[in-house]
Computed example of a mutant assay.
Amino acid sequence: MHVSQSRHFRAAVASTVLIATGTALTGVGAASAANADPVATSVAPRYQEAGDLFTALQFPELPSVGSTSEEAAEAPVEESVDAPAPAPEPAPAPAPAPEPAVSGDELARIVPQMPGDKIAQFVAPLNDAMVRGGIDTPVRQAAFIAQLAVESDSFRTFEEYASGRAYEGRSDLGNTQPGDGERYKGRGAIQVTGRHNYEEVSRFTGIDFVAHPELVAAPENAFTTAVWYWSSRNLNNVADGPGIVRVSELVNGGHHALAQRMDNFARGLAVLAHP
């Protein structure tokens, strides 16, 4: 078969192209064959073990990112230790008890007729009553003690010696029912008298003295009822201003035993203002 020269030429060109393409495909990403070491390229494997590669390149071993399950099993387990609870702060020291306004010795000097056993028994509730009533100056304290000393016969009794019949029918005292005079006679350290006052002091203390008037004379109530009477008549201001005579009139309703009240007051001032 006759083949033209043009066909031979085209076949030669095609062969050349195929040879060039094959050479390019086998040399992608590698150095050209003309520059390569023929010995090295003929024996080097396509892949190398990772360990050999690190050794050949003189790289140190990569650090372990995480331990395997076996390594984790062999590793010692550190027990967690809870932080100790903070020690509780010490409680603040209690405030020291305030000094009593009147000591037992001072009370004995103000009311020299007062029995010694009564001083020991009543000095604390007397001081408590003065604190509650704001009886907090020598003038007020001396006036308060002066009145209580007379009304209670130097703290010997918290119930009036008389029967109370003299108060029967006294509407100014609220004695409107038969027997009110005796039932609500003077009791307590300041001798609260009359149904009306018993009703008021019952509201103040929450104790039903109307139904149980004898409770006013109990030592635990005698000073509480006295400070109620004192405060309800605003006798602190009276002691500060008009003075002991007017205080006596508001406590007793007149001038009964006024000289004794004034003597007690003078002694109280001398003791408390210049201890």
Rank of each mutant, 00 (worst) to 15 (best):
A93F: 01
A93D: 15
P94W: 12
P94G: 12
P96R: 11
A97D: 12
A97P: 04
A97M: 13
P98D: 06
E99D: 12
P100S: 13
A101Y: 15
V102I: 15
S103W: 06
G104A: 15
D105H: 06
E106D: 13
A108E: 13
I110L: 07
V111C: 01
P112M: 11
P112L: 08
P112C: 09
P112F: 11
P112Y: 09
Q113I: 00
M114P: 03
M114G: 07
M114E: 10
P115A: 10
G116T: 15
K118T: 04
K118S: 10
K118L: 05
I119Q: 11
I119W: 08
A120F: 01
Q121M: 13
L126K: 08
A129I: 06
M130P: 08
V131D: 15
R132Q: 12
R132T: 10
G133Q: 00
G133M: 09
G134I: 07
G134H: 07
I135H: 05
I135N: 00
D136S: 14
D136P: 00
D136I: 01
T137E: 05
V139K: 13
V139A: 08
R140V: 13
A142G: 09
F144Q: 01
F144G: 06
I145C: 04
A146W: 07
A146Q: 04
Q147P: 03
L148N: 01
L148D: 03
A149P: 12
A149M: 11
E151C: 10
D153V: 00
S154N: 14
F155D: 11
F155M: 12
R156H: 03
R156E: 14
R156M: 10
R156T: 15
T157F: 08
E160I: 11
Y161I: 13
S163I: 02
S163E: 09
G164W: 03
G164I: 11
R165N: 12
A166R: 08
A166G: 15
A166E: 09
E168N: 06
G169W: 11
R170A: 09
R170I: 08
S171E: 15
L173P: 07
L173A: 04
G174K: 10
T176D: 15
Q177A: 12
D180R: 03
G181F: 02
E182W: 03
R183H: 09
R183T: 13
K185V: 10
G186D: 10
G186V: 04
I190K: 02
I190L: 15
Q191T: 08
Q191E: 11
Q191F: 02
R195P: 01
N197S: 13
N197Y: 04
Y198W: 08
Y198V: 08
E199S: 10
E200P: 01
E200N: 14
E200C: 05
S202N: 04
R203M: 04
R203G: 09
F204M: 03
F204W: 13
